[in-house]
C-alpha cells in the first residue's frame, strides 16, 4: 500500500486501511491464542496483542522491495508486511503447505517474496541481519531500505551496539524500530537496561524519534519521516515506540510478575479501541467499521479452515532439503 506524504492528514481510505490491518493482526492472534489453548498450534507462540499500531504504522511507510527482519513476537510484522494469511496459519499449525513447509513455525515465519526475512528465535539476532540486508540495498543501489523490529529486551544484546556503530559508519539505509513494551520477557525493562535507546543512538549520531506506539497516526507519521531519511541516503534512523504487551512473554505465561493495577490499565492503551474512538469523529460510519470487522473475521475463518485442511510435512522432503543440492554427511 502506498501511504500519504508525511504531515498530511490521513484520508478516509487510509484510515480504513489502518483499521483493517490492525484488526487483521489482532484477530489472527486472538485466533492463534484459542487454537493454542485447544492444542491445534504446537510449541511456543509469543503474541503482540496491544502492539498492533507499531507494526501497521511502520510497514504502511514501506515499499514492497524493502526488507524486514523481525523477532520472536513477529506475527504482526509478518502479516503487515504482506505474508499471505492462509500460508501463515498453515505454517503456525505445522503444515506442509505453510509458508515455510512447517519447518519453522511461529518463531520463524518468513516470506522472501514480500521481503520478510523472518521472525527470529534469538533475541537481537535480527538486528545484524537487517544490517546485512541494508548493505545489500546499498551495494545494489536499488533504493530499498531495511527495517528491523526489536523489543526493549534486545537493548542489552551486544549485536545492537555493534550494529548501531556499523550502520552509522557505513551510512546504511536501515530503520531500527524499538518496540518498548516495558517487559524484557519476565522482568521489567528498567531492571535490565540502565540507558535508553535514543541516548544510545545519539552516541552514534543516529537520528531518532520516540512516539506513543499505541497511536497509529503518530507511529506512521514518524515512520514516514524516518524511512524517507533512510531512503534518501541520510543513514540509519531509530524509532522508539512506547507500547504495552497485553499477553505474557509466551502464550500460557500467567504473568504473576505483573500487578493487577497494570493489567487492568492495559485496556486504556489499546491501540484499536483508541483508533475506533478517533475515527468515530471522522467521516467513517459504524456500518463501514462493522463491514471491515466482518471481512477480517471471514478471512481468519477461511485461513483457519485452510490450516486445518493442511497436511503433515513429509519427513524425507525436509531431511533432504538442508542443503541446496542433497544431503550433508
Amino acid at each position: 500500500m502506498k501511504s500519504t506524504k508525511a504531515g498530511k492528514p490521513a484520508s478516509k481510505s487510509q484510515l480504513l486501511d489502518f483499521y483493517e490491518r490492525m484488526l487483521l493482526v489482532r484477530e489472527a492472534e486472538n485466533k492463534l491464542s484459542s487454537l493454542f489453548a485447544d492444542g491445534e498450534v504446537p510449541g511456543f507462540i509469543h503474541l503482540s496483542i496491544g502492539q498492533e499500531a507499531v507494526c501497521v504504522g511502520v510497514t504502511a511507510a514501506l515499499e514492497k522491495q524493502d526488507t524486514l527482519a523481525s523477532n520472536h513476537r513477529g506475527h504482526g510484522h509478518a502479516l503487515s508486511k504482506g505474508v499471505e494469511l492462509e500460508s501463515f496459519f498453515l505454517e503456525i499449525m505445522g503444515k506442509e503447505e505453510g509458508i515455510c513447509g512447517g519447518r519453522g513455525g511461529s518463531m520463524h515465519v518468513a516470506d522472501m517474496s514480500v521481503g520478510m526475512l523472518g521472525a527470529n528465535g534469538i533475541v537481537g539476532a535480527g538486528i545484524p541481519l537487517a544490517i546485512g540486508s541494508a548493505l545489500a540495498h546499498q551495494v545494489r543501489k536499488n533504493d530499498a531500505i531495511a527495517v528491523v523490529f526489536f523489543g526493549d529486551g534486545a537493548l542489552a544484546e551486544g549485536v545492537l551496539h555493534e550494529s548501531f556503530n556499523l550502520a552509522a559508519l557505513w551510512k546504511l539505509p536501515v530503520l531500527f524500530v524499538c518496540e518498548n513494551n516495558g517487559w524484557s520477557e519476565f522482568s521489567p525493562a528498567n531492571l535490565q537496561f540502565v540507558a535508553n535507546v535514543r541516548d544510545l543512538a545519539k552516541a552514534f549520531d543516529i537520528p531518532s524519534q520516540c512516539v506513543d506506539g499505541n497511536e497509529i497516526l503518530d507511529v506512521h507519521k514518524a515512520a514516514e519521516e524516518l524511512t524517507a531519511a533512510a531512503r534518501r541516503g541520510d543513514g540509519p534512523q531509530l524509532l522508539e515506540c512506547i507500547t504495552h504487551r497485553v499477553r505474557g512473554h509466551f502464550e500460557g505465561d500467567p504473568q504473576k510478575y505483573r500487578t493487577e493495577e497494570e493489567m487492568t490499565s492495559l485496556s486504556e492503551h489499546d491501540p484499536i479501541t483508541k483508533f475506533e474512538k478517533l475515527v468515530a469523529t471522522k467521516r467513517i460510519t459504524k456500518k463501514e467499521m462493522q463491514s471491515v470487522r466482518d471481512k477480517i473475521n471471514q478471512k481468519i475463518s477461511n485461513a483457519v479452515d485452510a490450516g486445518r485442511g493442511g497436511s503433515d510435512p513429509d519427513f524425507e522432503r525436509a531431511r533432504t532439503d538442508v542443503y541446496t543440492a542433497g544431503e550433508g554427511l
Binding site: 526488507t67 527482519a69 544490517i131
Partner: peptide, 10 residues
C-alpha cells in the same frame, strides 16, 4: 550476522 542478511538479500 550482516553476511547472513546480505546473503539473504542478493
Amino acid at each position: 550476522g550482516a553476511a547472513v542478511g546480505a546473503a539473504m538479500s542478493g
